[in-house]
Amino acid sequence: MQPLFRCGHVNRNEDRLSLARWLSKILIGILFKETSLLFDRSRPDRGLIVDPRFIDGLRQCHFVLQSARKPTSFNCLHGEFPFSFYSYRIPDYGKDRGFDLSTNVAGQSIAIRVGQLGVIFINDGGFQMHVGSKGPFGLAGAELSELQFREVAARVHYKAALRDATHFYLTAENEQQIQVEQLHVRSFSGCLPGSDELRIFRDWDEIGLSYAMSAYMRVDRSTIFDEETRSCRSTLPLQSR
Rank of each mutant, 00 (worst) to 15 (best):
A161G: 14
Q177R: 04
Y86D: 07
H9P: 09
F121I: 03
H130N: 10
R12C: 13
D51Q: 09
V156H: 01
Y93M: 05
R199K: 15
Y88Q: 14
K25V: 01
S109N: 13
D51R: 03
P193Y: 03
D220M: 02
L17T: 03
G115W: 07
G94P: 06
I30Q: 08
R218P: 00
N104D: 13
Y158M: 02
I207E: 13
P136D: 03
G98P: 00
L117A: 09
A212T: 13
G115C: 01
R150L: 01
P91V: 06
L38E: 00
M217I: 01
A68Q: 04
L236N: 07
V64L: 05
L139K: 15
R6E: 01
T35P: 05
S67N: 11
Y211I: 07
L162P: 09
R6V: 14
G29E: 06
V105L: 00
V64S: 01
S73G: 07
E228T: 12
C7G: 09
I49M: 01
D164C: 06
P91S: 10
L147F: 11
L31S: 12
S18P: 00
Q177C: 02
R6L: 02
I49G: 05
Y169Q: 00
E151H: 02
E146W: 13
K70G: 02
Q116H: 15
G107I: 06
G141R: 03
T35D: 10
E173R: 04
K159V: 13
Q179P: 07
G8L: 05
P52F: 12
G135A: 02
E181F: 12
S24M: 01
F83D: 02
D205W: 01
V114S: 11
Q239R: 05
H157E: 10
L238W: 10
Y169M: 09
Q176N: 09
G141H: 09
S187G: 03
L48S: 02
S109R: 04
I120S: 07
F81T: 00
G190I: 07
D100Y: 15
